[in-house]
């Protein structure tokens, strides 16, 4: 492998890690918010300080680790499967004039799909929402949106690097 290819691979890896971290933090923000909104709806008085404290706890509590069932770990694993698939599809779509328009949507779609699959598979496994912040249609859509943002960031970081290189 020549130096340029190695550099490109390292940059892609860096973009992947940053995108996954960003998606995880945004997903956790939605997650915490959804839980706190539900608690408020049944009478809990939650201050901004309570919310910030809870969010920081959740960021630490669900963070990626060697335990693959952690939500953060699952997002990393999901992205690690989804983004290479999106890269292949992107390459195919760029070859066709008719399908070129789809190329910019592929990474965000891959990120959203990865999180949707995490939620679906975990629900099928436990038969309850293992990730309570994703309960309900809005809760699940918010999590998928976080995945889409992660995919979009990955695409931007990759594009910038492609331009630079």
């Amino acid at each position: 492998m020549d130096a340029d290819r190695m550099r490109l691979l390292l940059r892609a890896l860096m973009a992947f890690v940053l995108a996954a971290i960003a998606a995880y933090v945004i997903a956790t923000l939605f997650f915490t918010s959804a839980n706190l909104i539900r608690l408020s709806a049944v009478g809990a008085e939650i201050t901004v300080a309570d919310a910030v404290r809870t969010f920081l706890f959740d960021v630490r509590g669900m963070a990626p680790s060697l335990l693959w069932t952690q939500y953060g770990s699952l997002i990393f694993i999901g992205f690690a499967i989804a983004f290479p698939v999106a890269a292949v599809l992107r390459r195919f779509s760029m070859r066709s004039e008719a399908a070129r328009w789809i190329a910019p949507t592929l990474y965000p779609l891959a990120g959203a799909t990865a999180i949707a699959l995490i939620l679906i598979l975990s629900y099928q496994t436990y038969e309850v929402f293992a990730f309570a912040g994703a309960r309900g249609v809005l809760g699940s859509l918010a999590q998928c949106l976080a995945g889409a943002v992660g995919g979009y960031l990955f695409q931007i970081m990759l594009a910038r690097k492609e331009v630079r290189s």
Binding site: T28, F31, T32, N35, L36, L39, V42, G43, A44, I46, D50, A51, R53, T54, F57, D58, R60, G61, M62, A63, Q70, Y71, A130, F131, A132, G133
Partner: peptide
């Protein structure tokens, strides 16, 4: 429950900011 609890969720997230209320 679930406003005041000494437990956290299986996911590692907080159920609630409060242990007592």
């Amino acid at each position: 429950w679930p406003i005041a609890t000494h437990g956290i969720d299986y996911s590692g997230a907080r159920i609630s900011p409060f242990e007592t209320y």
